[in-house]
Design a protein around this nucleic acid. Sequence first.
DNA 1: GCCTGGATATCGTGC
DNA 2: GCACGATGTCCAGGC
Lengths: 238, 238
Amino acid sequence: MVIMVVSCRIAYSGRTSSDLGEGERLVILKEDGCVLVHRRSNYQPVNWQPSGCVFQTRIENQSLIIKAVRPSPLETLTMIVSRVEFLGTFQLNDEAEFLLHASEEDMQKAILAEPGLIEPGLQVVDFEKKVAPGFVDVCAVDSRGNTVVIEIKKDPAGVASVKQLAEYLKYIQVPAGRKLRPIIVAPSLAKGVLPMLTKMGFEFKPLTLQKSLETLQRLSRSDQSALKGWFESTKTKE
Amino acid sequence: MVIMVVSCRIAYSGRTSSDLGEGERLVILKEDGCVLVHRRSNYQPVNWQPSGCVFQTRIENQSLIIKAVRPSPLETLTMIVSRVEFLGTFQLNDEAEFLLHASEEDMQKAILAEPGLIEPGLQVVDFEKKVAPGFVDVCAVDSRGNTVVIEIKKDPAGVASVKQLAEYLKYIQVPAGRKLRPIIVAPSLAKGVLPMLTKMGFEFKPLTLQKSLETLQRLSRSDQSALKGWFESTKTKE
DNA sequence: GCCTGGATATCGTGC
DNA sequence: GCACGATGTCCAGGC
């Protein structure tokens, strides 16, 4: 990895184009062929190149010119370096595994493992069920035999979530004499969403990532092998 | 700006949580309170914190501990540094303005300034028109008085674009005896989209960013003041 | 290869 | 502060 603090000009050409005049920046070149150019502020790089680039360097008019070319889609980042404040190369020894502990998938797992999180008596029928344009997160049957369709969001559910669920419902068939109960599961509802929900006859069940995590950990401790077996049998069934 | 190459462990807790074991990484702390932790590969940082964080440092068990806390939403990044390979602080002098030359907005500007890009005789009626959940990019009237509704995409238009346009149409009113012509304007259509478009009676008009740019530049050269006047009068009208 | 959806998305803008 | 759309989004997973 090459780390440089330099004064430079930068031009990008590809999906669109950009120009940045002379100034001091932090430039990072990584071994997988990606580039990051950071200014003194902002989380995001001002210019960059995703991995897979080919680097070229040359000297022209007493300036160091660095090009990073990405073959597909074809885009080019050109840095014209007038002064080098710092330059270092580092071999980073880093084999650690990155563990992300919770996401929407964990909420789903928690519901699959413990349907009572939604309501007593609920039984899961299917999950990740393919319908026309996407997947239904969880399909279930309640204690009265009604069909329950669940859409999970880890963030406050907005209008888009409700529409997505409504879209899926078009492709769900309900046995005669049973009701269809669409449920949004999320930590909360976005501001104006409740009226819409009520109007459409949808339900909302609050569930946080944290609660899901706790549930998974509890179940994992109490009966790890059984849970694992459940997942495997379900997947095999698919 | 603080740039460090260190061996460290990292924990994140907030919108979700993560853990990363011991390894060598590049750590960047910026003056606006953002954090970037980069591994030897990948464009994206493995851990980060957006701007607005408060930093805390302390020594514990011969390790340097750096915390970056973001107040809202509350999230915490903790780095336990066991060894420092490099540490530098830099005052980056960088006042240059960043210029991005083209985006979807430029396609819209080009159409507003030169409706003939879509078809001869087209007249723009409105743009960024507020409808229920979003904004209609451009509203216009064709040479026969039919209402034209345009959705602009700078990337190949997929199913989502068509649905978005369809959604907006629900809120568009057409004068009696006139037709409604929904048009997708994009460089191309994604693979399976044309059948859907045809079925819904939508039209597709190819337009690239580059062509839009050329148009804007040509008009800018030929009649800069008039174009400026047009935009201002349109905005005032709003 | 294209397309779809998720992300600790981030960021700006309007309300 | 909240919601929503754009991003040179990036990226993994399917097909």
